[in-house]
Design a protein around this nucleic acid. Structure first.
Length: 616
DNA sequence: CAGGAGACTTGTAAAGAAAATC
DNA sequence: GATTTTCTTTACAAGTCTCCTG
């Protein structure tokens, strides 16, 4: 029986799972838990990670079938940004070389700019223009009449002041720092948690964003605009009727207090730059986020089962006589093969000009019937999310290539490549192919399956733990490359690389020294043959071994870092890789989980750590 | 059925804390 | 013990996708 259940584990927690077996396993687990923890396990104590299984196995009774997200929700409301503190008299703003005292509102906005003086943003035309325009709105009419040219404004003294302030903060005594830390902890314990359905849960962002200048990414037309201060009157509170409602700060009122348990947020407000809504929600370690995350990976696993069918179908659709179907099929091929994002339309002029698959334009691809050794090569070059460049040359199948040529016919560079397609059409189609399937599921699926394959390929069973970790990171890296998760090389990269190299050199010297000593000890032992010399040999041997290990570890680190120069692993690790794959890998190879997930990550993936077994 | 509001996930940079080094 | 380096956490922008409305 034991072996039987172990076998189940082996199958069940593979990424390519069989749903029926899972159910069986879930039932068993639930029962086992129940038995293990017995009757004294009350709701409050029970960790959320068991809930998904329990609910699944108990048939999802009341609570989540009607779309509600909770029954009870109590919190203290958000923490507001501290009020503006006027600058000391001695810190001056100069206009046209002359000191000028600004009214408090104008001064506050000026400080936002002054704080960013060292940033590239303040050199950009759009940023300056937007800032200046919004700044003027805060000025008194007198100030408006005096200040007519941003170039004549001198914020440098203010900038110096803030630098000095932050320097002073660093120089504070231990006691002062301790005091601040304690105050922060108090704030966290009071406002950083809420009660949701009998659990005390950590809130993700309980502070309301302070006012400042909007920092759009890429070529954002709104960069530099003033992000205004949020007051209690702007904030909608969401909590349960029967909870203690949060109190607004003295003398203020909430915009509204509502009791909507169909949503997960605790508070919201409308931001003034894009007019979008911002939310206060729970931390990733919370039940509500964890369950959702789990669901996401379950959907990806369902895709695994029917992906062959879907692939066959879209290949078939390349031949369709309907243009829209062909476009849909080619787009889906890109999404599947290249892990492109869906690519919703965006309002022109409101955001940076970036695209995803469905919004690709003619100018973003180039076709090469022949390139080097390869045939039918497509070159992609466009700005994706966060204005990160996607550049890739890949050979495609002839049919795809011919279709692309067809799509390009009679079009201008700025025309849509897929003019008969958008994300809503695509997702509607995907929904018909599999329940819950959308474009982004392909990203999750392909990321996770890639990790699994790479781990299988790269891990050698007799590698040391550092070597295994390098393999893990390489597998992770393969995914990051697939998903195009790039980063700017860290500013100190070269230097830190050099430091590491010096360390390696030192170790090498140490090693050869230790080896020499070992040799000497051996010779000594040969000559004297006594116990003492024997012991000495052993000691030296151990030393050599230890240094060898250290050296190897350093070398692994160096390789890892070098390969990681421009690649950001975090996003894929946090959002795309089914944590059960990683956990199972750790268990299988005896790698401590802490080596791949830090504390926060372990909290976020608690559900998976708790779930996964040795093999997968 | 387009268009927009709303809700929630994904993404990078920067700040802050901790660890390593001088 | 101060300074530098590295790791962790936070901030908040920018996506995806759903749902509602006219």
């Amino acid at each position: 029986m034991f072996w039987l259940s172990l076998c189940f584990c082996l199958t069940v927690y593979r990424f390519d799972y069989k749903p029926k077996k899972v159910k069986v396993e879930l039932d068993k687990k639930a029962k086992k838990r129940k038995y293990e923890y017995g009757d004294d396990e009350d709701e409050e104590v029970r960790s959320f990670v068991q809930k998904p299984r329990i609910q699944q196995s108990w048939g999802n009774e009341e609570r989540y079938t009607d779309g509600s997200k909770w029954r009870f929700l109590e919190h203290k409301g958000p923490v507001f940004a501290p009020a503006y503190e006027p600058l000391p008299e001695k810190v001056k703003f100069y206009y046209n070389g002359k000191p000028m005292k600004l009214s408090a509102p104008a001064e506050e906005v000026a400080t936002f700019f002054a704080k960013m003086l060292d940033h590239e943003y303040t050199t950009k035309d759009i940023f300056r223009k937007n800032f200046y325009k919004d700044w003027r709105k805060e000025m008194t009419s007198e100030e408006k009449s005096i200040i007519t040219d941003l170039k004549k404004c001198d914020f440098s003294e203010m900038n110096e002041y803030f630098k000095a302030q932050s320097e002073a903060r660093k120089q504070m005594s231990k006691e002062e720092k301790q005091k601040i830390k304690e105050e922060n902890e108090r704030l966290l314990s009071e406002y950083g948690f809420c009660i949701m359905d009998n659990h005390r849960e950590r809130i993700g962002n309980f502070r309301i964003e302070p006012p400042g200048l909007f920092r759009g990414r890429g070529d954002h037309p709104k960069m530099g605009m003033l992000k205004r201060r949020i007051r209690p009157e702007d904030v909608i509170i969401n909590c349960s009727k029967d909870s203690k409602h949060p109190k607004p700060p003295p003398g203020t009122k909430w915009k509204e207090v509502r009791h909507d348990n169909k949503v997960t947020w605790l508070a919201s407000w409308t931001e003034n730059i894009q007019g979008s809504i911002k939310y206060i929600m729970l931390n990733p370690s919370s039940r509500i986020k964890g369950e959702k995350d789990w669901q996401k990976y379950e959907t990806a696993r369902r895709l695994k089962k029917c992906v062959d069918r879907i692939r066959t179908q879209y290949r078939e659709d390349w031949k369709s006589k309907e243009m829209r179907i062909r476009q849909r099929a080619v787009a889906l091929y890109f999404i599947d093969k290249l892990a492109l994002r869906a690519g919703n339309e965006k309002e022109e002029g409101e955001t940076a000009d970036t695209v995803g698959c469905c919004s690709l334009r003619v100018e973003h691809i180039k076709l090469f019937p022949k390139m080097d050794e390869q045939e039918y090569v497509v070159e992609f070059d466009f700005l994706g999310k966060d204005s990160i460049r996607y550049y890739n040359k890949i050979p495609v199948e002839k049919r795809v290539f011919k279709n692309l040529q067809l799509f390009l016919e009679n079009k201008q560079p700025e025309d849509d490549l897929f003019d008969r397609l958008n994300t809503s059409i695509l997702n509607k189609h995907l929904q018909e192919l599999m329940d819950g399937l959308t474009a982004k599921v392909f990203r999750t699926y392909n990321a996770s399956i890639t990790l699994q394959q790479q781990l299988k390929e790269l891990t050698c069973c007799d590698d040391s733990i550092p070597a295994k970790l390098l393999s893990y990171n390489r597998a992770n890296r393969a995914v990051a490359i697939l998903c195009n998760h790039q980063r700017a090389p860290p500013k100190t990269f070269e230097k830190s690389m050099q430091n590491l190299q010096t360390k390696i050199d030192e170790k090498q010297n140490q090693l050869s020294a230790a080896r020499k000593q070992l040799k000497a000890a051996k010779a000594n032992h040969k000559a004297s043959h006594d116990d003492k010399s024997k012991k000495a040999v052993e000691v030296k041997r151990k030393a050599v071994q230890r240094i060898e290990e250290q050296l190897m570890k350093l070398q692994m680190q160096a390789t890892d870092r070098e390969e990681n120069k421009q690649i950001a692993l975090g996003t894929s690790k946090l959002n795309y890789l089914d944590p059960r794959i990683s956990v199972a890998w750790c268990k299988k190879w005896g790698v401590p989980i802490e080596k791949i997930y830090n504390k926060t990550q372990r909290e976020k993936f608690a559900w998976a750590i708790d779930m996964a077994e040795k093999e997968f």
